[in-house]
């Protein structure tokens, strides 16, 4: 059993952890609650990924294939872990398919849940068909045609609202979801590429296209694709009466109220803690931090750890994370699990 690592979740971080563990000569049991592997990028139908520009189904597809083709990996789809007993080097997990898995370590690559825009009813999602979330917009881009869902017309103007479900004490989301600024700038580029007559406006509080995303996405969208950035937190989205939407707010740079007509409004939705986290916390005996993400073991010497020894985590389970960093953290968590198992074996002599 000390030669097996149980990996829960098959998104970018879980797939990366699995490849790391298998590559080190250990066995992997992967448990995925959905019927397909790949996590959010596949399940939500993302278009081109930031920053590679590669289609999600190709990029993540390669990661899935690498794991599926590996004989050291056993995969349980449509399955959950219902119980975890034991200690480092000797865990027993019960699965919802009534099977039992013996493993020396567990990696929780359980990810996040997209913010549900219905929780911000004033921004019109669920009320007006032309108000979409960024994941729906990703799907529209992947489908190859930019059109208003209400009547199929090509939008003259699209507004992207940032920080929907992020940085908002009103709804208990006190974190920055980190990726939405860059993803929105990328979406603005994709919209303009596919529909040159459409003007894209991004309504922001701050722009947080950190690191190398600054010029590759923020500057590029502004300088090459004429995206307009408007400093305003929107108060309300309503109907104009002639089939368009009205975006209301205060332009804080002009210091005046705005009521601007748009054809489509896109919510740049944030990353919530996985909605199953309370259950995950109970089943695996791990603590959650104050926002509801998984608590790290120790910030500097056990970065892949949780509050329970032998149980590791990575990626968006810890908090909003990019795909690239989730993959890096998955590899780190897989490596750490293997390292700790090796130490246990050596100690036992």
């Amino acid at each position: 059993m000390q030669d097996t690592v149980l990996i829960v979740g098959s998104g970018p971080s879980g797939l990366s952890a699995a490849a790391q563990v298998a590559g080190a000569g250990y066995k992997v049991v992967m448990v995925e609650k959905e019927e397909v592997l790949g996590g959010a990028p596949i399940l939500s139908g993302y278009a081109k990924l930031v920053p590679s520009g590669e289609w999600a189904k190709d990029a993540i597809g390669r990661m899935v294939k690498r794991v599926e083709d590996d004989k050291a990996v056993t995969i349980h789809k449509g399955t959950r872990v219902t119980k975890l007993d034991g200690e480092p080097g000797n865990f027993t997990a019960k699965l919802s398919n009534n099977k039992q898995v013996k493993a020396g370590a567990v990696v929780l690559a359980t990810g996040f849940t997209h913010f549900d825009s219905v929780n911000k009813p004033e921004w019109g999602f669920g009320t007006f068909p032309d108000v979409l979330t960024s994941t729906q917009m990703e799907q529209m881009v992947a489908s190859g045609k930019i059109a208003c869902p209400s009547d199929g017309r090509v939008p003259e103007r699209v507004a992207i609202l940032l920080c929907v479900g992020s940085r908002d004490r009103q709804i208990g989301r006190e974190w920055c979801s980190k990726i939405c600024c860059t993803v929105s700038a990328n979406l603005a580029i994709e919209i303009k590429e596919m529909s040159p007559e459409t003007d894209v406006f991004i309504y922001y509080m701050d722009i947080r296209t950190f690191g190398l995303y600054e010029d590759r996405f923020y500057w590029k969208s502004q300088e090459e694709f004429k995206t307009k950035f408007v400093k305003a937190r929107i108060a309300e989205v309503t109907a104009s009466g002639d089939g368009r939407l009205l975006v209301k707010g205060e332009d804080t740079l002009v210091k005046r109220p705005i009521v601007i007509p748009f054809d489509m409004v896109v919510h740049a939705i944030g990353m919530d803690p996985n909605q199953d986290n309370p259950e995950i916390s109970k089943v695996f005996g791990v603590e959650l931090e104050k926002h509801g993400f998984l608590q790290k073991g120790e910030q500097y010497t056990n970065t892949c750890g949780t509050s329970r020894p032998g149980v590791y985590s990575c990626g968006a389970a810890y908090g909003p994370e990019t795909i690239d960093d989730s993959i890096a953290q998955g590899a780190a968590a897989g490596g750490r699990a293997v390292m700790d198992l090796t130490a246990l074996v050596r100690k036992a002599g």
Binding site: K228, D251, V254, R256, P257, I258, V259, I260, P261
Partner: peptide, 10 residues
Amino acid sequence: TPRTLTDYDD
């Protein structure tokens, strides 16, 4: 009269 901006000149 209101101070509201009601459109942009694209």
